[in-house]
């Protein structure tokens, strides 16, 4: 399922990243956001998802949350 449909404060394991742009996938990779890694949604604010990846906090928009499958 897409991360955008995930529940708050539940650790998910990333299955796949459906981003069309290869450089975005590479960029996400360098943040530790790639299949097999854990991702947790901490809150949903202003249409954004505040997620925790490898102890760091990021804000991602809805479209990116739809591209990350967990």
């Amino acid at each position: 399922m897409a991360l955008s449909r995930g529940k708050l404060n539940t650790p998910y394991v990333i299955q796949q990243i459906h981003a069309a742009q290869e450089d975005l996938r590479d960029f996400l990779f360098t943040l530790g956001c790639y299949p097999g890694e854990k991702i947790t949604i901490l809150s949903k604010l202003s249409g954004h998802y505040i997620v925790s990846i490898r102890n760091a906090r990021y804000s991602i928009d809805e479209s990116l949350a739809e591209a990350i499958f967990v």
């Binding site: 981003a19 975005l24 960029f27 996400l28 943040l31 954004h48 505040i50 760091a56 906090r57 990021y58 804000s59 991602i60 928009d61 479209s63 990116l64 591209a67």
Partner: peptide, 9 residues
């Protein structure tokens, strides 16, 4: 074109 948004907080 639109772009994805990601930013470290």
């Amino acid at each position: 074109s639109r772009s994805h948004f990601i930013m470290e907080l």
